[in-house]
């Protein structure tokens, strides 16, 4: 049994200790907003917040996340009211949308640490892959969220 805290709720999960947090979130807790993209920590589609820091969950075992506070895209707000979600909607960022949970959570963490990020800050923080090429809109949306 692994005990993890996700979106403010404690869960006891019956999974092997080496199971990546990604698959525990998706397959045990049915939190499918966290996506599988590469499985080796390169794309960021599986990003969640671990005690507020962006973490790629395909390479983080669920056991290693025990005792930490996990926020997934589903836990960001109840009604898409988080300023980053609002900015994403205003800039019409997503195309296929598959990368966007990870992008949004990475941006949330950036803005938490750096409320008014420069372009260079954004460059450094936003290393996730978007195959649809929404990057310039992501940048605009982060600046918009910073102004909100």
């Amino acid at each position: 049994m692994i005990s993890i805290r996700v979106n403010g709720k404690q869960h006891e999960v019956d999974a092997e200790a080496d199971t990546p947090l990604l698959w525990v979130l998706r397959d045990e807790l049915n939190l499918t907003g966290t996506k599988f993209g590469c499985g080796i920590g390169l794309c960021g589609a599986c990003t969640v917040l671990l005690d507020g820091a962006p973490m790629r969950t395909c390479v983080l075992t669920a056991a290693a996340a025990a005792g930490k506070s996990i926020t997934t895209i589903e836990g960001l707000s109840k009604d898409r009211s988080h300023p980053v979600q609002q900015a994403w909607i205003a800039e019409s960022v997503p195309q296929c949308g598959y990368c966007q949970s990870g992008m949004i959570l990475t941006a949330v963490a950036l803005l938490e640490k750096t409320p008014h990020p420069s372009d260079a800050d954004i460059d450094a923080a936003m290393t996730n892959i978007c195959r649809c090429g929404t990057y310039n809109r992501i940048r605009k949306a982060i600046h918009r969220a910073a102004r909100a």
Partner: peptide
Amino acid sequence: PARLDVPAKVDGGACYGIDTVLPGMLY
């Protein structure tokens, strides 16, 4: 007009093929 698929793509609600869950399914 605002794209109709955008809201579901900022809150994790958008359902892709990979998100399908059926009762009793194997992986």
